[in-house]
Structure formats: C-alpha cells, structure tokens
Nucleic acid binder design. Sequence first.
DNA 1: GCCGCATCAGCTGA
DNA 2: CTCAGCTGATGCGG
Length: 724
Amino acid sequence: MDRTSNFMPTPDQSVLDVQPLRTLAPMFPAPLGVNTFNLTNTTPPLVFVTSAGQFPGGFGAPGHPAFRSFAAAFGAQDAYGGQPASSRGQDAGGGQATAFADKYAANGATNPGATADCPIDATPISAYRSTPPTIIPLDDDDDDNEHLAGNQTSASGRKIKRPSHLSGYKMSGGFGSDDSNVVKAKRHRSSYRKAGADNEFTLVPLSSSNPREVVEEVLMTFEALRRRYLQVDQAQESSKRPDLKVGAMMMARNLRANIGKRIGVVPGIEIGDIFYFRMELCIIGLHSPTMAGIDYMTHTFGDKDDDSVAICIVAAGVYENEDDATDTLVYSGSGGSSKNNEEMHDQKLERGNLALQTSLLRKNVIRVVRGFKDPGCLGGKVYMYDGLYKIHESWKERTKTGIQCFKYKLLREPGQPEGMSIWKMSQKWVENPATRGRVLHPDLSSGAENLPVCLVNDINSEKGPGLFTYITQVKYPKPLSSMKPLQGCSCLNACLPTDTDCGCAKFNGANLPYSSTGLLVCRKNRLYECGESCQCSVNCRNRVTQKGVRVHFEIFRTGNRGWGLRSWDPIRAGSFICEYVGEVIDDGKSNLDDGEDDYLFQTVCPGEKTLKWNCGPELMGEQSMNNSDDTFEPLPIKISAKRKGNISRFMNHSCSPNAFWQPVQFDHGDDGHPHIMFFALKHIPPMTELTYDYGEIGTDSGGIGSPGAKSCLCGSSNCRGYFC
DNA sequence: GCCGCATCAGCTGA
DNA sequence: CTCAGCTGATGCGG
C-alpha cells in the first residue's frame, strides 16, 4: 500500500508485458435512460437500464438519431483506448462514433477492432469495436416504449418518479411456497409493458450512470437476493434453487441490463469478468438461455436478408473438449444426448446447430463464455467471458457413444484483452508456484499463512517493499486473556440455520451470517463468529475468518501506486479475503504522527455502496434486523501495519473498490476492538488488484480529518477525488 | 474424503 | 402451449 502515490490510468503501461492488469473498471459517461428502483426513502436509488431506455424500441434504421446517440455513447471509446472519458471532449467522440455507425449501417458485417496498439491492460472491452447491437424491435408501440424512448433522447426533460410502494420485492407468504410467487412474477412480466401506470421502477436520468455500473448493480442485486433467499430457505429447510428464483424475479421486474439480443460486444461487460450462475449471464444480457449453450437470434443482413445466427455460446467443457489452447475452441453442437431413458440419436441441423452453421457462412462474431471448475469450491463452477470469436470451420463427427455430432471450430478475434489465458496462467502458478516468473520472494509470510504469499515485480527493478515484520494475528496492547470474553452458543457439533436456539445466530440478528459455503450474506455493523466458548466444533459454518486466508495472493508492483495485492484464484462475492493485521493502537495514547502512518487502518465511513453492501433484507422489503446496521458507527480501533502487518497492508484505495471491511469478533468480547476482516464486494477475477474504500474525509473520520487526505485519481466515474 | 453418476426440480425462449 | 437445454443441488456407490 502506498498511500502517498495516486492512481491514474496512464495510456502507456505497455511495460506490463506479461500480466495484463485487470485494475479499475474503465468508466465512461453515457447519457442513458435508466430505470431506478428505489429501495427505501433513505437509500440512494439502484439504477437499471431498461430495455427501451438503453436501446429505444424500433430504432433499427441506420442513421436514426437514436442510433447515432447510442453510437456516441458506446462507440466513443474506440479511438481512445482506456483513457478516462473525462479527459476528452465528448463531441469528438460523437463524431467518430457517427462515422462508425454509418460505416456499419450498410450491412451487419462485423469488424473486430484494431486495438492491439493500445496498452492491453487499459483497454476495456468497450473499446473493442464490434457490430452495432442489433435489437429485436418490440412488436408493438405501447406506452412504455414511447416512454422510454423519450427518456433516452431528451437529456433534460426527464422526470423522476418516486416508487409508489416497495412491495415489489416483497414476496407474499414468506419464502416457503414458491410456486405462487413464480406464477405471479410471470403474470407481472406478461403485463409489464401494458401496465405502465403502476410500475415501481421509475425512469431516472442519472448522467453519472454507465453500462459498467449498471451491470455491476444488477449482479450485486442478484447475489444479494440469492444469498438472502438461501439464508431464509435454509432456515425453513426448503432450499431449492435460489438462483432461479431470484433470476425469475429480476427478469419479471426488468431488473436487468442489456435487454434485447445483439451481436458482438455487450456494454458494461468486460473480457475476464467471472460469474457463478448461468442466470447471471442471463440478467446482464450476455447469454439469454438459462441452460442451453447456444444463444442465437434473427439478424437482418444487407437490406432484407434475414438469418438466424449464433451470438453467444457457453463452453462448459461438458462435451469432451480437451483443448488447452487459449485462442481456439472446438464446440460441439447440441442435442443427441439421452434423457429419460430415451436412446441417443444423431444431432440435427436445427436451432442452435443451424445458427452456428449460418454463422460460419455469415462470419459474424460470437461471444464466448468459458466454464471451469471453481478451484475454491468443490463441485462448483465458474464462468468467464472470453470475448469475441468467429467460426472458421465445421464438420460432423461420430462420438464415442456412436452418434453423429456437429463440431464447430472457433478462433478468437485478435486484438482483444486477455481473458481465459490469464486464468490458465494463474491456475498454473497455483499448481506450481515455481512457474511464476519475476518472483522476488516465494513467500513473504515465511509459512505463517495457510498459503504462500508471493512477491513479484513485473514492472521495474525494485526489490520489494520497505522492511516490516510479517505477522498473522493482530497485536493488542493488552493480552487477550484480560479482555472481556465473548459469550458462546451451546450448539453441538455445528450451528445450523434451522436451530432457532443458537446463541451465536441470535447475536447476529436471528440468522447465521454465512452461507454453508462460507459466503457472507450481507454486511453488518458487527458480526460474531463462534469461538472458544462455543460448544460447536471447528467445522461449524460460523467460523470463517478465524481459519485464515484461502486464496493464493501475490504482492505485485503496480504502475504508479507502489505495491498492491491481487489473487491467483478467482474470488467470489462475499468470500472472506484477509484480515487487517497490525498493532492495535491504544485509545489512550494520542498519536500525533497518525497522518504520517501510511499503514494506519481506521473505521472511516466507506462509500454508501460499501456500507450498504447486499442488504438483502431491505431488498426484499423486510425491515432491517438491526437498526444500527442502517447507520455507520465508527469504532475506536486503530490498527497500524507500519512495522508489523500482513498482506492487507498492501491493499490500495479505490473509489470503486472490490473489497470491503467488516468488524468480526470471535476471540474476545471487546466491542470497541473487533477484528477487521475484508470480504469480496463482487466477483473478482484472477489477477485483478484488490482494493477497498479507505473512506470519506469529513464523515466520522475519528478526528483525523483532512490533514491526512490524499488526492485520488482512480478514474472511476464516481471518484471522490481524494481519500484518507 | 473425493470422484463420477443419476436424479430431480427448474426457467426461459423458440 | 410444449419442450429442449453445455443447470445446480443432492445423494449414493465405488
């Protein structure tokens, strides 16, 4: 962590020859019509792009003003690589984009961008040129369409409607009986367009919104609701696919991004993004079928030449593709597999298979999502968006089971940021750390952590961070034994969500705070894990952070922010990352040199997004379990990792962070000095720098205030400009 | 304890 | 309306 240096993306980071950094999300302004769903009166609105809001219905004609405005919004990146959009005039971008739109208006031919000259680490996928999105026009011009289209084009005349009620998320009859809810949701969906009057989702033109944020918002909402459903369902012993339930709910409410199929790039989705459910791909508009591997659509080529072409495939490795290459893919057609004792049959050239065949002729780009085994979760699966491919050949093949099967060979379009190759590379390092080059030290923790902490420098000749002592446990000024003990539970073996008598569950507001796989359900002002005074065993699910780190970390040299922290493993949203370890500074002692300690942790109020992370109860219309969770409550604790610390001292600040801190207690009852534990705010792909929000100046900064302020140029659209 | 396999309840879009 | 489909959770046997 180097708090004195600022982060500003520079276009010249090509020195990063080996590891493209997936650092902060490139942001660019996009004046969009957006839907806002207001959760509570005190919560800032969540923002979602509506179907027609982002892509007005029926604008198909080239040169249409709406098209032009779309292209201006999304095409403007083309000439500028990953530079922050704010650093250039929007007019220039618009002009460029208009030309781009006209160029592709003639036909639907695709054109992979020539962005290879851009620094690969800073090139957002949105900078990669593609076909303008093709929208299936809505079949009728109902109220909503006009509504939304109007919002899209008028920048000033947009009106903000308050939601009339919050019952949208509230599921009637608890969470046990699901069928009624689903049916209800479907009914809502089918009547959605007509029922413009009573929609809870209002149209708010937030100029600060951009596709990336919309996508993240949608995903965060999905995860929040899914985990909350899981929590509630498990307590009622009726756990059945919360992913599908929440997906259906969000689809019905139009709480989704990028509605409408398209060829090529999907705004707000970047190469390397990872997902844990097929439903996630669905609600962000990347791949619409919930199970099928081939997504396809009818596209008009030339003037009136309609064809059904493939637009996205999920290669989950189900059909025996042992291909290690990172830029080619042999995909098997669908069908033929047996189910319900039916015998296997040859695949037919229909539906998805036919669309793939047509795509071979039409040469359109196809998005590829790759599925992997999740190294962090047994039996789990991760999906990674790997960018645009084209089909180069196809053939028929007889499989081991004796049926005819279609095969399609896809090649990755050149000039795109790295996707799966990063995954393969980092997984290789996990298996054999010796294959990681540029290593300065194989394990900074010298065996103290569960897994080695690698120190690397791909950038320059610096040999490492300044001297400090690596410790894995917080140093309190007084011995633990002298601190107030924590009351435990009397559960036998392990605490279970169905056990309403578990004392620890009660401490946490009636529910166990973690899912069965150890994911935090939602942020709380305080979290109590089971500890020594509990009867339960170490296998209890309410013991997560005390078991230490679970992913392979590396400390790496950043371009301009000193040293940083990242992981070789993917990190799922809600996962425990690490503890802020250091020396706890006694409250009594005044520390005049606080401002000079770049490694001082204080509970400064983080951004609203972090603070309200996945407040599942509120999302579902429930009252918060604990009123104090609604407000930020600074703690007296101060931890200095200047002389002694662990990996977390290297975590840099970002105004768009991917991690947050959470007070956790398990070994003592001193509420003023909890452990500070970091959790993943969202899914974090391998090799992405881990960052958290250092906090806002002026809001409960514990007396430290502005003297310690450092200016921040993190480049995110919501950058506050400084941090402390 | 770990794997592969079978089973089953699901949901969307064609 | 029906149904396919590179799901995801669970349970069993090797």
